[in-house]
C-alpha cells in the first residue's frame, strides 16, 4: 500500500489526531469514558495504521523494537511501583491514600500513575503482537 497516494496522505493526516485522541482518552478518563486500557489500544492502533500504510520497517524505525519490548515491562513496573510506593509511605500495597497529605489527592495521584502504567503496557503489547504477526512470512532483513 506504500504507493497509494490517497492512503499515504490520509494516514499521515490521521495519525497525529489519533494520538491526540489517545491522550485525551488517557487524561480525561477520570472525567469521561476511557482510561489507560482504551488509550493504550488507540496509541497502538495509530502506529499499526502507520505500519500498514508505510510498511513495517518504517514503523520499526519510528518505534524501535527495543523500546516496545522494554515498555511492555515498564508499564507493569510502574503499576507495581505505585503499590510499593504506598508500602514505603506506610500504607498497604496499592493504598493510594498515603501518596499525598490529602487522601483524595493521593487517590487521584495513584489512579493517574496506575492508568499510565496500564496504557504503556497495553499499547506496547498490542504493537508487539501485531509486529510479530506481520513480520512472519517476510524476510527479516526486508
Amino acid at each position: 500500500m506504500k504507493n497509494d497516494l490517497v492512503l499515504r496522505v490520509v494516514a499521515k493526516l490521521f495519525t497525529p489526531f489519533v494520538l491526540l485522541f489517545a491522550l485525551y482518552v488517557q487524561f480525561h478518563g477520570e472525567l469521561g469514558p476511557g482510561g489507560g486500557f482504551q488509550a493504550g489500544v488507540i496509541v497502538a492502533a495509530a502506529v499499526i495504521l502507520y505500519a500498514i500504510v508505510f510498511g513495517l520497517p518504517a514503523a520499526r524505525r519510528l518505534v524501535p523494537d527495543a523500546i516496545v519490548e522494554s515498555m511492555m515491562a515498564i508499564g507493569v513496573l510502574i503499576y507495581a511501583g505505585v503499590g510499593v510506593a504506598g508500602l514505603l509511605l506506610g500504607g498497604a500495597y496499592l493504598d493510594y491514600f498515603v501518596l499525598d497529605r490529602d487522601p483524595v489527592h493521593g487517590q487521584e495521584r495513584g489512579i493517574f500513575w496506575v492508568e499510565i502504567g496500564v496504557a504503556i503496557t497495553v499499547s506496547s503489547v498490542m504493537l508487539k503482537i501485531f509486529a510479530m504477526f506481520a513480520s512472519r512470512g517476510h524476510d527479516p532483513d526486508e
Binding site: L31, Y79, G83, Y96, P103, H105, I111, E115
Partner: peptide, 29 residues
C-alpha cells in the same frame, strides 16, 4: 468523595479494584 474521580468506572478499576487491574495488566504483559 473518597477518590476525587468523577468517573466511577475509573475509580472502581484503578482504586477499589486495583489488585484486579494489576492482575489484568500482568495478563496482558
Amino acid at each position: 468523595r473518597e477518590t476525587g474521580v468523577p468517573n466511577v468506572v475509573t475509580a472502581v478499576l484503578a482504586s477499589y479494584r486495583g489488585y484486579d487491574t494489576l492482575g489484568e495488566t500482568t495478563v496482558v504483559f
